[in-house]
Write a protein that binds this DNA or RNA. Structure first.
Length: 501
DNA sequence: CGCCTTTGACCAGCGC
DNA sequence: GCGCTGGTCAAAGGCG
């Protein structure tokens, strides 16, 4: 049946479009034959060209792959360099910075395991590194993943003390909490117990310790959604109307791990409701999805920098910051920074809202922060590619600021009419600022981390929607390789009901 | 049914 | 001591 049909078609002459048969067919006149041959040769050439182009494309893709691999290697190297930098910054010469056992705990960044005071007291101050190493080596794997939440094999290959030193907030925030809780989940009012305990033990020093342990990282970003999609799972456990801000403040708790101590407060800026102020507290004690690492790393790094500054100026921080009320700033403060007036916790603020060129002065309401503790403000301008820090005396560190470094902005540092304690504060803040500057400017990895956060937040703010916001994180997750395997994160790593954070 | 949000109540710290 | 405020708890209800 089919054969008959084919014969019929073939006899029709030229109806068959099989190109390969045409050169051998003797149909039509000689001129048509030449045309067909020419046409066939053209098509063959075209196919060859396509093959060649495909090969060239494959070559390009291969080269791109090689470049990406090199980029990944570079990122990993940068990360290791960043770790070294943090270790270097946060663990200066012990004799010059560590003055008491508690201070040792404060400076032992990232010690995830609870270290009781007895054992800590037995250990020599100068052996802080060995403390970290021995404790971490005894710890389980999860604790090795702490800190900057980078749990690649490269990180695992690093010395244990490096891993242990990644996360200041782990050691600072959770050590005593886990002591109190016996390693279990947070007891009701754990923070209260913590604060109350530390305050009742030995007065101001412990108070300052508690303050340092409660370091917070506040992120200001333009976001239309209820919360920033930082990749983590959060559970809302409370909401309050804070004084002076009609927008309610929501309290969230990380639910990725039941024992995770991380909490965050979300509140819209009263001045500009498109600005979302998210304040993070604590460090995740579990591995994070790729999409959550950027923010976690950023906040952890920022908190580390802040705590480093606080630690290095702990003396003045205790004696000066508590006694000094930055009433000038707080009175003129045109927006409401979470906890800035009521809590003595050091807060570092990452200002990701300065996406448009603005005239930045010390009175710029996006860049003036005040609290009883020296809040440190990092203002980023994502549109700027040349990152040059502008530092002024109030601890603000304007990244990519529109204004060039202008000494007039720091002029009041040298004003002779300032009270002595204000000078102390400014000196402390200057040290803090220098520490931050050192951490950020001297290591490209820090900038990479910040850039990752910027890309995430910027994408979200630009898209004004959670789905699109997550696409940025998704692309990061899809294109980054960790632990030698590609981890595909969900397009929207939200909660099961899709409401997310 | 499990997880989440909502929301009023409770507690602690702080200032007057 | 009292009131204000921030932070947290926990019961109730909603949602998938």
């Amino acid at each position: 049946m089919e054969g008959a049909i084919l014969k019929t078609i073939a006899s029709a002459g030229g109806a068959i479009t099989d190109d390969k048969r045409r050169p051998n067919e003797s149909v039509g006149c000689r001129g048509e034959e030449e045309e067909e041959q020419e046409e066939c040769s053209k098509q063959v050439l075209k196919e060859d060209e396509e093959v060649e182009s495909a090969k060239a494309e494959m070559t390009v893709v291969r080269e791109e792959n090689v470049r990406l691999k090199m980029l990944l290697n570079k990122i990993e190297k940068d990360y290791k360099s960043l770790q070294m930098r943090f270790t270097h910054i946060f663990h200066p010469e012990p004799k010059t910075t560590i003055e008491e056992p508690d201070e040792l705990v404060s400076l032992s960044l990232g010690i995830r395991t609870p270290i009781d005071h007895q054992s800590a007291a037995k250990i020599n101050k100068s052996d802080s590194s060995s403390i970290s190493k021995s404790k971490v080596e005894d710890d389980d794997d999860e604790h090795l993943k702490l800190g900057l939440n980078y749990d690649s094999e490269e990180a695992a290959k690093l010395p244990a003390d490096l891993n242990a030193n990644q996360s200041p907030e782990n050691s600072l925030t959770e050590t005593k909490e886990e002591e109190l809780a016996g390693g279990e989940t947070w007891p009701p009012g754990g923070n209260k117990v913590n604060l109350k305990t530390t305050r009742s033990v030995s007065g101001d020093d412990d108070l300052s310790q508690a303050n340092v342990k409660r370091a917070r990282v506040s992120v200001r970003a333009r976001c239309e959604t209820a919360t920033m999609n930082d990749g983590c799972q959060w559970r809302k456990y409370g909401q309050k109307i804070a004084k002076g801000n009609p927008c309610p403040r929501a309290y969230y708790r990380c639910t990725v791990a039941p024992t995770c101590p991380v909490r965050k407060q979300v509140q819209r800026c009263a001045e500009d409701t498109s600005i979302l102020i998210t304040t993070y507290e604590g460090t995740h004690n579990h591995s994070l999805p790729v999409s959550a690492r950027a923010m976690a790393s950023t906040t952890s790094a920022a908190a580390s920098a802040l705590l480093s500054g606080s630690s290095s100026t702990s003396q003045s921080a205790t004696t000066t910051f508590h006694g000094l009320n930055l009433s000038d700033n707080s009175k003129t403060r045109p927006f409401y920074l979470p906890n800035s007036t009521s809590l003595p916790f050091p807060t570092i603020t990452l200002d990701l809202t300065a996406s448009t060129p603005t005239t930045t002065t010390t009175s710029d309401h996006f860049n003036v922060f005040s609290s009883r503790f020296p809040s440190t403000n990092l203002s980023f301008s994502p549109s700027q590619t040349n990152i040059l820090p502008t530092v002024w005396s109030n601890g603000n560190l304007n990244y990519g600021a529109v204004l060039p470094y202008n000494k007039t902005t720091v002029g009041h540092l040298y004003q002779p009419n300032l009270p002595k304690n204000l000078y102390q504060l400014q000196n402390s803040q200057q040290v803090l600022t220098e520490t931050l500057t050192k951490a950020i400017t001297s290591d490209p990895s820090f900038r990479a981390v910040i850039a990752a956060a910027l890309s995430m937040v910027g994408g979200e703010s630009a898209s004004s929607g959670p789905a699109q916001a997550s696409s940025t994180a998704e692309s990061v997750g899809k294109h980054l390789k960790w632990d030698g395997q590609t981890k595909i994160v969900p397009s929207n790593p939200l909660t099961s009901n899709g409401k997310g954070i």
